[in-house]
Design a protein around this nucleic acid. Structure first.
Length: 592
DNA sequence: TGGGGTCAG
DNA sequence: ACTTCTGACCCCA
């Protein structure tokens, strides 16, 4: 999968085949499996550490070990603060208006590496700087961009140094004016180094006094990159672009399996291809299912243009998922076992990532949910079946089914095991059968379960100093409740459970209240003959576990017989008609 | 919203 | 024999 830098020094690469690696380095240590928890913790701590330096909170994570920082505001502030009479002895303020927190630096030099490394072309970085002797603030405007990047490079160096001091992590940084350029600049010198892409960023030809034209360093930098190396241009898109530029499809296909091509097509090759531009790229990359405006976007990337903002730090993830892969997963008992394992991790992850310490003394629990995922998804990757007869093998990777996440998972009084047990029985297993109607022969190589569709809980702030934000709470209530609104009152209760994959909102429900937790307003159940409906809220959309049989096609079937269509509550062992299980489960979730 | 695709580390 | 375990965002119906 991957290897550390120690191994790379010995000639190993990531993605290398194990037998190759063993040949090269017989004393290689191979570690099977992973332990992501520690990486997640390290990542979070790293991220928090860097976030504390920013003023804007613009800290965007890319995976576990990369992060974009938008430090435009710090740099701008310190640019204004510079004393042009003595740039070599500058001070970078890390806090606004506090000259005591920061570091000294030489504002006439880039910290660390630059691209180009030794700018000895007519555009000399040093020449572009105001001279300390010239003493004219006007000169500072000679090239403010260079100064800003110099400031950025010193800030980066300070951050890297602090990170190593305080957290023990060495790091690599790229400094430029946008995400794509900084990311690529960061690749130039690794590990444990930094690279600043220095101006000019723009091509200029109309210099006075007949001076030589100046190529943009952005173009110079990007041109040598293989198109597939440009962030945002991945496997599929680089394939399409390559095919077009080389004007022939195959031949190099084997060569690029691991992303390397014999016949590399560089950004320059693409950029200078006859007629190349956003329109041609749109025709190459566009089509049904592709991103709108992809041609223009790709063209921008090839030119180093990226106006996407560095995202603000997010309080809750949009999705949490757990997956594992298997040599073979073929029987229902095995599947149930693995679902239990995965669901246990998932519930634990929900607790660590979505639960916050409750500082409200009125609240009954010590923890509160930051967000409630509304949806549960089960995905699998069936191993593609071999086709001896020649019929087309469909090339899909993963298939999935999703449905409402039952609310009992938010119950903090139940044990994780009890929650997992119910989740598997009531939600995951039915979804699995929907996903794999065939009773056997799935040959699964992967199973993933995820919670998505986060509805963020009203923040704690609303209730302190100034009272509760009623309007916002009603708005939230509206959002949370809308899926339970009465939509089709004419559907008789019987039909609720009659079909396994009945559309989920065919029946009429009013919220019973308990999917809201903690401090939230609860809905008033409606009166009268809707009383029955009102308790049947929660997971009744899902198939109810029953005694299943298999029809002649090997399809899962719900048993129609009333006698046998019974379910046992995993919690209290009560036996009841299957259709009542959802309501019963709801009852448990309401228990104090 | 559900299902799927692409891209990323 | 195109990794694994994620997470973000986009498209279409």
């Amino acid at each position: 999968m991957t290897c550390n830098y120690e191994a790379r020094r010995r000639g190993l690469r990531k993605l290398q085949l194990i037998h190759e690696a063993k040949k090269l380095v017989p004393d290689i240590v191979i570690v099977l499996g992973e332990e992501l928890g520690r990486f997640r913790d390290a990542s979070k701590s790293l991220y928090k550490f860097l976030e504390a330096f920013t003023w804007s909170g613009k800290v965007e994570r890319l995976g576990f070990d990369e992060v974009f920082l938008d430090v435009t505001d710090l740099v701008q502030y310190n640019l204004v603060l510079l004393n042009y009479h003595d740039l070599p002895h500058s001070f970078f303020q890390l806090k606004r208006g506090d000259p005591t927190v920061g570091f000294s630096f030489d504002a006439t030099k880039i910290a660390g590496h630059s691209f180009p490394e030794n700018p000895n072309d007519p555009y000399n970085a040093q020449d572009a700087l105001p001279r300390s002797s010239s003493a004219l603030p006007d000169n500072a405007n000679k090239d403010p961009l260079l100064l800003r990047l110099i400031l950025g490079s010193h800030l980066a160096q300070h951050l890297r140094w602090s990170l190593e001091e305080e957290k023990g992590y060495t790091s690599t940084v790229g400094i430029a004016t946008n995400k794509i350029l900084s990311k690529l600049a960061g690749n130039v010198h690794k590990p444990k180094a930094q690279t600043t892409l220095i101006p000019p960023y723009e091509y200029s030809s109309d210099r006075p006094e007949g001076k030589i034209d100046h190529e943009s360093n952005v173009t110079k930098f990007l041109d040598s990159h293989d198109i597939g190396k440009i962030p945002g241009i991945g496997f599929k898109m680089s394939h399409k672009i390559r095919n077009h530029v080389l004007a022939r499809p195959a031949k190099f296909d084997e060569g690029l399996i691991y992303g390397e091509t014999k016949e590399s097509v560089t950004v320059r090759d693409v950029r200078l291809f006859p007629g190349m531009g956003p329109e041609l790229l749109e025709s190459i990359l566009g089509g049904p299912g592709t991103e709108r405006g992809i041609g223009g976007k790709a063209w921008n990337l090839l030119n180093g243009v990226d106006d996407t903002e560095v995202q603000q730090a997010k309080k809750v993830p949009t999705q949490i998922s757990i997956e594992d892969s298997y040599k073979q997963l073929d029987t229902l008992p095995e599947v149930v076992k693995e679902l239990r394992v995965l669901a246990t991790s998932l519930v634990r992850r929900m607790h660590t990532d979505l639960l916050e310490d409750n500082d409200d003394p009125d609240a009954e629990g010590a923890k509160r949910w930051l967000a409630h995922p509304k949806t549960l998804r089960l995905s699998t990757r069936p191993r593609p079946p071999l086709n001896p007869d020649g019929t087309r093998t469909r090339s899909f990777n993963r298939i999935s089914r999703s449905g409402p996440l039952p609310n009992f998972v938010f119950n903090l009084k139940d044990s994780v095991d009890a929650i997992v047990e119910k989740l598997v029985l009531i939600a995951l297993l039915p979804m699995f059968k929907k996903l794999h109607p065939q009773q056997s022969g799935w040959n699964l190589s992967l199973v993933n379960i995820a919670v998505t569709n986060m509805v963020e809980a009203a923040s704690e702030d609303g209730k302190h100093g100034g009272g509760r934000d009623i309007g916002r709470m009603f708005k939230r209530q509206e959002e949370v409740l809308k899926e339970w609104r009465v939509e089709d009152k004419d559907v008789p209760p019987d039909s609720i459970v009659s079909g396994a994959d009945r559309p989920s909102r065919a029946s009429a429900f009013q919220n019973g209240g308990s999917e809201l937790t903690g401090d939230e307003i609860q809905a008033e159940p409606s009166a009268g003959n809707e009383a029955l409906d009102s308790i049947m809220v929660g997971s009744e959309d899902m198939m109810i576990p029953t005694q299943n049989s298999v029809d002649e096609n090997g399809i899962w079937e719900e048993d129609e017989s009333d006698e046998e269509n019974r379910a046992t509550c995993p919690e209290c062992d009560a036996v009841m008609p299957a259709f009542a299980m959802a309501a019963h489960e709801r009852y448990h979730s309401l228990e104090e």
